[in-house]
Nucleic acid binder design. Structure first.
Length: 172
DNA sequence: CCCTGATTCGC
DNA sequence: GCGAATCAGG
């Protein structure tokens, strides 16, 4: 499979979103994680400053790209995205705890969209399950806007989730 | 052993 | 340009 314009676009988007190379590879399909990483490098996209992997350390050309200190307060979460139904007891507790604090807090610093803010336990088959924020942070919540029983997200977030392939520039 | 990204190098 | 093999590390 080749790197069409759209596939490259998706690669950029997903990589910027902090998804791991293997996750991106799975999503795009037809390519291995190595292919994804290789492409990322060829595109001159910034690598992950730290986090999971390792970054420059080989022994040979390490300083060539000088990608070392690149501030990126991303992930650290890696593969604990959506999970709309499961959720371990531990996470439930953590989230519940977060809810309590959010409830006590009058919404301040957090940039709150128009969405309803629902906790995992408040989600139903009719609410948008789009996660907002870092699940490990206390300001995490779900969109919660009404949607069809089948649809996992509301109309707006469905569009974000299943991007049209076409337009899309710097909406993020 | 699972995973992560980084790099090399034959194609 | 591509990506498997390999490396280095969590």
């Amino acid at each position: 499979m080749s790197w069409t314009d759209e596939r490259v676009e998706r690669l950029k988007k997903l990589w910027a979103d902090g998804l791991s190379a293997s996750q991106i590879a799975a999503e795009l399909g037809g390519v291995s994680r190595n292919a994804v990483i290789g492409k990322v490098h060829r595109l001159h996209l910034p690598g992950r400053a730290k986090s999971g992997g390792s970054s420059a350390s080989r022994s040979k050309r390490v300083a060539s790209g000088s990608r070392s200190s690149y501030g990126s307060s991303r992930s650290t979460v890696t593969r604990s995205i959506p999970r709309t139904s499961g959720a371990t007891a531990l996470k439930q507790e953590v989230i519940a705890d977060a809810i309590a604090e959010i409830d006590t807090r009058p919404v301040e610093d957090v940039v709150v969209p128009i969405f309803r803010k629902l906790a995992l336990t408040e989600l139903t088959e009719k609410t948008c399950k789009w996660p907002v924020g870092d699940p490990l942070q206390e300001d995490f919540y779900f969109c919660g806007t009404d949607c069809d029983d089948n649809a996992p997200y509301c109309g707006y977030h469905s569009k974000l989730a299943f991007q049209p392939a076409a337009d899309r520039k710097r909406s993020r």
